[in-house]
Design a binder for these strands. Structure first.
Length: 264
DNA sequence: ATGTCCGATGATATCGGA
């Protein structure tokens, strides 16, 4: 089973890229973030054989799950999610696909460590950990994929000094990740296709991609049996090349889950 | 030395957000 996650930065702007990438990569399940479109406006992807579950408000956020191995028990929000400016944002969707319980997650950016949005981000990570606990009571195999907007370690940014005073690298954000792991999950680190680190995001500005000034913020966590079944994982930087691409690369994970346990 | 892109808007350039 091949699963993947990709922050597309507008699915409507990326339909051609997405279609080509799906045909070439053939994931069984793809988690998408920042669709930036309403659930009912999610574009058709004819001929590829994917079912779609998508939620969105329009301009911002928006997450989706594409699956060609079944798509059931769709859950359109975390357990007790925090709100932003009084509203529940479309940042999380879960579904059961081919025996795997999988979530597509778009963690709030935080903006600056002083900003109220940063507190929202920390609350959101705490709600995600709570959701992980609840989900593990009900599902034998759980995987949480998405744009976490946190670099797990200093090695996951191109230059730690460039992030002084910024979000994505602070101790409380990283504690949010370790608290999530403490619910019984393991991170699945991808291998790079080039260079030393498997970055997944490069800013559009200032030639960040050709200079490889990247970050690894698109992450995958899974329960131990799922993590133990990983046969390969990589960040597909090739999808970041060229004009009109997302500023994120997809992360692709191959699993060899025993078929009987996948029925649980 | 310089360097972006997205969606929305009483839009046709500007803005917030990333």
């Amino acid at each position: 089973m091949r699963i993947a996650t990709w922050n597309l930065n507008s699915v409507k702007r990326r339909v051609d890229h997405l279609t080509r990438w799906l045909a070439a990569t053939e994931p069984d399940v793809l988690c998408i973030q920042e669709t930036k479109c309403k659930g009912e406006d999610f574009p058709e992807l004819p001929g590829l054989g994917y079912e779609v579950a998508a939620i969105g408000d329009g301009a911002w956020n928006g997450v989706a799950i594409l699956s060609r191995v079944g798509l059931q028990e769709v859950t359109p929000q975390l357990v007790e999610p925090p709100t932003w400016e009084g509203k529940l944002e479309p940042r999380a969707i879960g579904a059961t696909c081919g025996g795997l319980r999988i979530w597509s997650l778009y963690i709030p950016n935080g903006r600056t460590p002083e900003h109220e949005h940063y507190q929202y981000k920390l609350q959101w990570l705490a709600a995600l950990a709570q959701t992980s606990k609840v989900e593990q009571r009900q599902h034998a195999h759980l995987a949480l994929l998405g744009d976490f907007n946190v670099a797990p370690s200093d090695a996951d940014v191109y230059d730690r000094a460039a992030f002084e005073g910024s979000t994505h690298v602070t101790a409380p954000e990283r504690a949010g990740l370790t608290d999530l792991e403490a619910t019984g999950l393991q991170e699945i680190p991808p291998r790079p296709l080039k260079y030393d680190h498997a970055f997944t995001f490069w800013d559009y500005r200032q030639l960040a991609f050709p200079k490889n000034r990247g970050m690894r913020i698109d992450l995958a966590y899974a329960t131990p049996a799922v993590a133990a079944s990983v046969t390969d994982a990589y960040s597909d930087r090739n999808a970041r090349k060229g004009k009109g691409t997302s500023d994120h690369a997809p992360v692709v994970i191959d699993l060899d889950l025993p078929q009987d346990s996948a029925l649980e």
